[in-house]
């Protein structure tokens, strides 16, 4: 059963400039994205910086207001709910951020941080508060006696655990994890990934896992959404991603990822050039400037996402022929 259904989601950021501070351009951060997330699934979103993956995640839980399209959560259209009607959904949809330093208010202790959120949503009675906070801290691998400490007294990995605890405290059923391990060292990354995996099983969470690291996404997610310049170019199952990838961009991403084996030194797939500026994207397929398989028709229109079976969708004229 689908928990999240996104239909043709669009987010444009206005660009102001000039003497009169008028809107002179717009950046299409998210450009008509549609997908569904099944209950209990982990959807990975990958892409390079500026592809709109973070904006997508934040628009989805309405930290950023969308420009167009609709978001259905558990059968309810939440796209235009006001602050009060949104409140129950706020509890059910939480977010874990990338930067373990800027994502925690430096002036609140762990206890204050959790208590504030719990009280706001009346999750537990005041009398059970301390027990509840301690149980959450234990769940994410922090000691209960650390609850009166301030964020700066923790290491990066522990701070990320606090961020996860804040999300979990509201007993959500959907969490957007926005690059939760990108800022962490390899050994800490593994700890946090394991923790998220355990919590997902224990609480039956549905996750949207945003990352630029295909290795992590491949390991952790059930399905993956590959984004390029605000468009979804491919959606597929994470199992055997190397064999099944069809879109030239996905293949390039996989090929550019250095492999941990000195004996397997293949030529890294090198894409020419850079991601085009989001201010003036190419008119047709966004990948047209760097695509090794580019044809004349790619310049004219954005290729549609075509289902190749088993939910594997690709947006490429050449592949879909």
């Amino acid at each position: 059963m689908a928990l999240v259904e996104v239909e043709d989601l669009v987010k444009h950021f206005p660009v102001r400039g000039g003497i009169l501070n008028r809107v002179i351009a717009k950046v299409n951060a998210v450009n008509g994205v549609s997908f569904t997330i099944e209950k209990g699934d982990v959807l990975g979103v990958v892409g390079e910086s500026g592809c709109g993956k973070s904006t997508l995640g934040k628009t989805l839980i309405r930290l950023i207001e969308s420009t167009g399209g609709s978001i259905n959560y558990d059968g309810v259209d939440i796209t235009n709910l006001n602050h009060r009607d949104m409140l129950p959904f706020r509890r059910r949809m939480q977010i874990v951020f990338q930067d373990p330093y800027s994502s925690l208010n430096p002036r609140l202790t762990v206890r204050a941080l959790l208590k504030e959120a719990i009280t706001h949503h009346k999750i537990v009675a005041e009398a059970d508060m301390e027990d509840f906070i301690e149980s959450i801290m234990l769940k994410v691998g922090l000691r209960a006696d650390q609850k009166n400490r301030f964020p700066h007294e923790f290491s990066g990995g522990q701070r990320q655990r606090i961020g996860i605890a804040r999300a979990l405290a509201l007993q959500p059923d959907f969490i957007v994890a926005d690059e939760p391990v990108s800022a962490l060292d390899v050994s800490i990354q593994a700890q946090v990934l394991n923790l998220m995996m355990d919590l997902k099983d224990e609480f039956g969470l549905t996750l949207m896992f945003i990352s630029h690291d295909l290795k992590v996404v491949e390991h952790f997610c059930d399905r993956v959404l590959v984004m390029y310049l605000g468009h979804v170019v491919e959606e597929m199952s994470c199992v055997d991603i190397h064999e099944n990838a069809l879109h030239p961009y996905t293949k390039a991403l996989l090929g550019a990822n250095p492999i941990n084996d000195p004996d397997d030194r293949r030529e890294l797939t090198v894409l020419e050039g850079d991601v085009p500026s989001p201010f003036n994207p190419p008119p047709g397929c966004p990948f047209v400037t760097r695509c090794p398989k580019v044809e004349a028709r790619c310049n004219d229109a954005m290729p549609p996402l075509v289902d190749k079976g088993e939910g594997h969708r690709v947006a490429c004229f050449v592949v879909n022929d």
Binding site: A190, Q191, M197, K215, F220, D240, N260
Partner: peptide, 22 residues
């Protein structure tokens, strides 16, 4: 070396070996 996620069907979704502590 072990704590890096590996690709391939066999490794998918398995717990990663970690180095505890900091």
């Amino acid at each position: 070396l072990e704590s890096i996620p590996k690709s391939g069907r066999r490794e998918h979704g398995k717990r990663l070996p970690t180095i505890e502590g900091v």
